Computed example of a mutant assay.
Amino acid sequence: MTDQPSPPRGRPRDPKSHAAVLDAAFTVLEREGYAATTIERIAAQAGVAKQTIYRWWKGKAPLFMEVLARKANQSVQLPDTGSFQGDLTALLTGTFAAVSTTLRPLMRALAVELLQDEEFAGAMRDVFVQRRRANVRALVQQAIGRSELPVDTDVELVCDLVFGIMWYRLMFDHAPLDKCAARQIACAATAAAVQNNV
């Protein structure tokens, strides 16, 4: 599904400048890390005035939330393998591959930001978290349509099972997020849903 940018502030965004800022933010992030990245450095990399960035985003965290949503949308596509477990495995394999790149420290950094800012936490849920969950919801509904899963499957708890494990491993780094993990999580979520225990 397509991630829409956050509502513009002030004048409408110029599409080319908007894309340039997002690209520049990711370039600076890869080079310097989230903590060292500043709006000034992003503006210089993008070739725009820093006032332009502040007109479109309230600060660094909302800007990088859009960078994250954009990268996630580019990296992860909804699969159709013919089975729920196969679909979920494919979705998580793509998701974990993206998370294993520069996005992993970015997601950790944004998790810290949302704990300190309720407004940003709400935006993060709307722009990033809910849209990732919507992908799993779509796969569950697809599986219900194929009569693989019960019609009363608790879709939201399936989402919690899938993404709860992902975020736990992401934050504490106690176990890998790889193809094996994708298969294991998909298998567990499928078994629980088929048995209607979720």
Rank of each mutant, 00 (worst) to 15 (best):
Met1Thr: 15
Asp3Gln: 10
Pro5Ile: 15
Pro5Val: 13
Ser6Gln: 14
Arg9Met: 12
Arg9Lys: 12
Arg11Ile: 04
Arg11Cys: 02
Lys16Cys: 00
His18Ser: 01
Val21Phe: 02
Ala25Asp: 00
Glu30His: 03
Ala36Tyr: 01
Thr37Ile: 02
Ile39Thr: 15
Ala43Met: 02
Ala44Leu: 03
Gln45Pro: 01
Ala46Pro: 02
Val48Ser: 01
Val48Lys: 02
Tyr54Glu: 08
Arg55Glu: 14
Trp57Ile: 09
Pro62Asn: 05
Leu63Val: 10
Phe64Asn: 05
Glu66Leu: 04
Leu68Pro: 01
Ser83Gln: 07
Thr93Val: 14
Thr93Leu: 09
Val99His: 05
Thr102His: 09
Leu103Arg: 09
Arg104Gly: 12
Met107Ile: 11
Arg108Cys: 07
Leu114Arg: 09
Glu119Asp: 15
Ala123His: 07
Met124Cys: 09
Met124Asn: 03
Val127Met: 04
Phe128Thr: 05
Val140Asn: 03
Ser147Trp: 10
Glu148Ser: 12
Val151Asp: 13
Val151Trp: 03
Asp152Glu: 13
Asp154Gly: 03
Glu156Asn: 12
Val158Glu: 02
Val158Asn: 02
Cys159Ser: 12
Leu161Cys: 11
His174Met: 01
Ala175Tyr: 06
Asp178Cys: 04
Asp178Arg: 07
Arg183Asn: 11
Ala188Phe: 11
Ala189Phe: 05
Ala192Trp: 04
